[in-house]
Design a protein around this nucleic acid. Structure first.
Lengths: 341, 341
DNA sequence: TAGATTTGCTCCATCGATTGAACAAAACTA
DNA sequence: TAGTTTTGTTCAATCGATGGAGCAAATCTA
C-alpha cells in the first residue's frame, strides 16, 4: 500500500534473483531475454509499483525526450491551441512538452531558454517575443546542436525551420477585401517592423494599396504591441487626422478590439462609417458586436506541422540545418465589421 | 567558436590537470577548495562554454528542481495569470516549471500526471479537470512522497494543501447583490456538483436564497461544463420555463457570455429585464456590451501563495501532510449587466 | 556425437556530477 | 623538532539505467 520509497530495477532484480541488466533488457523488450523472464519482470515491476527513473535513462542515453516550447503568451487562443496540437503529436511519439511563456519579454525569453537548456531538452520550439531583436540566445540553442523550430514569429537570420502563414499575401487579401467593400482610405494598426511577420503584413498592406491605386500615407500606419490599449491609442490617433480613414486593418485581434471600443465610444458606426478587420481569429471576435472580421491561421495545422518538423529533425540529425520555411495558407473570415451591403 | 560538443567537468579537469571532483567542488563553492583553483575553474568553464548537465546532478542529488503544473486550460486568463505568478516565484527559488493542460479531460490529466512523475518532478501543483472524479492518480502523486498542492479546483478527500477562494461566501455575496438590485427569481447556471468549488457555489447560492426568503427551485439550477455553448443551452432552457427568472448567476464567465448572447438574440434587455453575473473576471467581461459583473479571484495572489506553499513543503518535508486550506477573499466587480438604477 | 549456432543471462563499464573518506603537504603549536 | 591542525586535493563509491562483450547451457547440424 503506502510503499513510499520508489523501487528500482535493482529491487526487481533482487526479487527474481537475476541481475539489474537482465531486468533492464526485459523491460526494454530485448529479444535476448526469454518470454518467461519478461513476464516475471513485468509482474514484479507492477507489484513493486516500479516507475523508471527518467533521469537515469536520459543521462545514459543522452536523450531526455523533453521538448521545450516557448510562446509569448499562453492566454491567447492562437498559441494555446497551437501548443495543444503540438503536445498531442509529440506525446504520441514519446516526447513530453515543457511549455514556458515569455510574456513578450526578451529577458524572460532568455531565462526560459537557459532553463530549457539546463533541463536538457532534446529540442526547442519557439515563437519569438515582440521585444526580441537580439538573436544571441537562439544562436545558443543552435550551437548546442539540438533542433530549433520557429513558428509564427520567426527570423530569417537564424536559418532554421520555420512554420507559419504567408503574412504578405494575407495582408493583401485583407486590403483587397476592404477595397471591395468600397473603402478608399485604409489605415493599418501594425505590429513592430523589426518582427518579420509584422513587417510582411505592412509590406503586403502597402503593396496592395499600390495595386489598387490608393495612396500610402505614413499617418495611416501606426506600430505598436497590438494589445487592447495599443489598439485604443492607435484608433484615437487615427481619429485626430484631418481626414479620417474609412477602414482599419489591425494586425492583431486585441488591437482591433481596442479600436472598436473607441469607435463605439465616439459613436462612429461600424461598418457603415468605418470597416474593421483584425488578425488571428481570437474567439471574442465572433461575439463582440459587431462581430469582427479576422484571419484564421489554422492553429492546429501550424501546431501539427511544427511538431512533425521537429520529429523529422530528430530522426534525421545529420540533415543540414538551413532556412526552411513551411508556409500555410490563411483564411479571411468576413464578419459584420467589414461588410458593406 | 562552433564548439558543438558539450564539455563536462572532466574536460575542465583535464585542462587544469586536476580531478573532476575538485572541479565539481570548485563550481559548488566548496570551502575546502582554494580561491586560486576556483577562479581558474570558472575561467576554464567559461572558455569551454561549459553547461552543467542537469540530468547527472539531479540523478545524484535525487532532486530535479522541476515542478509540474497541471491546469485545465492555458487559454484562460485566470489560469494563465496564476501560472505566470507561480513561475515567477518558483524560478526565483531555483525551480523550473513544467506546465501541462488537461483540457478538462480526466484521461489527459492522468497522462499528464504520469508524464510529470516520469520526468521526476520534485512536486506537483494542480487544478483539477471538470471531469475528474476518481482520485487514484492524485493518490499516486501523494504515494510518491512528493508535495502535491491543489489550487482553485481541489478535493477535500485528497487531504493536501489547497489554495482558493471561499466559494460559498462569494456565492452568497453575488445573490445578495442581485437581491439588492431588486431581483426575486435568481437562476444559477452552475458547474458540476461533484467538483467541490461548484458544489460550494451552489450551496452558497441556495443558502443565500433562504436567507432572503426567496424560494429555491430545481428548475432554476442547471449544471454544465460552463463553456460558452453550455451557457447558451442553459439560458434557452431557462427561458422556456413558465415563469422566467429575472437574474442569472453563472458560475463561469464563458457560460455568462453564452447566456448574454441568447438574451440579446431574443431581445431581452440586460440588466433591465434580466440581471447577469459571471465568475472569474475574464478580460472579455469588461468589453462586451453590456459589461458583465463578475468575481475577481485575485489570480496573482493565488499563484503566489500556491507557489509559496509548495516551497514550504519542500523546505519542511517532514511536516505532516493533511488537509490544509488557504482561503482568499474574492471581490465582486459590479458592472452594467447587473446594475438596476 | 563432435562441432557450430543460438539462447539467456551475467559482467562491467558508462553517462556526468556529487560527496564522504582518505591522505599528503603546509602551517601551526608547544 | 616532534606532534597537531588545517588546507587542498585525490580516491572511490554512488545515483539508476543501459548495452556491448563474454560465457555457459541448450539446441541444432551433419
Amino acid at each position: 500500500m503506502g510503499n513510499k520509497k520508489k523501487s528500482t530495477i535493482k529491487d526487481i532484480a533482487n526479487v527474481l534473483g537475476i541481475t539489474p541488466s537482465a531486468v533492464s533488457k526485459a523491460l526494454n523488450n530485448n529479444p535476448r531475454i526469454s518470454e518467461k523472464t519478461k513476464i516475471a519482470v513485468q509482474q514484479v515491476a507492477k507489484n513493486l509499483n516500479y516507475q523508471p527513473n527518467h533521469l537515469a535513462s536520459a543521462l545514459r542515453k543522452g536523450k531526455s525526450n523533453l521538448v521545450g516550447v516557448i510562446i509569448p503568451r499562453a492566454n491567447s487562443n492562437f498559441f494555446s491551441s497551437v501548443v495543444e496540437k503540438m503536445e498531442e503529436v509529440l506525446n504520441s511519439h514519446g516526447y513530453n512538452v515543457i511549455m514556458t511563456q515569455s510574456n513578450e519579454s526578451y529577458e524572460k525569453e532568455c531565462r526560459n531558454i537557459d532553463a530549457l537548456l539546463y533541463t536538457q531538452v532534446d529540442g526547442v520550439i519557439a515563437s519569438m517575443a515582440n521585444e526580441t531583436v537580439e538573436l544571441e540566445y537562439y544562436q545558443k540553442i543552435k550551437s548546442k546542436g539540438i533542433p530549433l523550430i520557429l513558428f509564427d514569429r520567426g527570423e530569417n537570420d537564424l536559418e532554421v525551420d520555420y512554420v507559419g502563414i504567408d503574412d504578405y499575401m494575407t495582408s493583401q487579401m485583407v486590403v483587397k477585401h476592404l477595397v471591395e467593400q468600397g473603402c478608399k482610405r485604409i489605415a493599418h494598426i501594425a505590429g513592430f517592423q523589426h518582427s518579420r511577420i509584422y513587417k510582411n503584413r505592412i509590406r503586403g498592406y502597402k503593396d496592395a494599396l499600390v495595386e489598387f491605386d490608393l495612396p500610402i500615407s505614413k499617418d495611416l500606419i501606426i506600430e505598436s504591441n497590438l494589445g487592447i490599449d495599443d489598439g485604443r491609442r492607435s484608433m484615437k490617433k487615427l481619429l485626430e487626422l484631418p481626414i479620417r480613414p474609412d477602414a482599419i486593418y489591425a494586425a492583431g485581434d486585441w488591437a482591433a478590439l481596442g479600436a472598436l471600443q473607441v469607435l463605439k465610444e465616439v459613436g462612429i458606426k461600424v461598418p457603415e462609417e468605418m470597416a474593421l478587420v483584425g488578425f488571428s481569429n481570437e474567439p471574442f471576435t465572433s461575439f463582440v458586436s459587431p462581430p469582427i472580421s479576422t484571419i484564421n491561421q489554422h492553429n492546429s495545422e501550424i501546431g501539427r506541422i511544427t511538431a512533425e518538423t521537429f520529429l523529422d529533425r530528430m530522426e534525421n540529425p545529420s540533415k543540414e540545418v538551413t532556412l526552411n520555411k513551411i508556409i500555410l495558407e490563411a483564411e479571411l473570415i468576413i464578419r459584420q465589421s467589414s461588410k458593406n451591403k
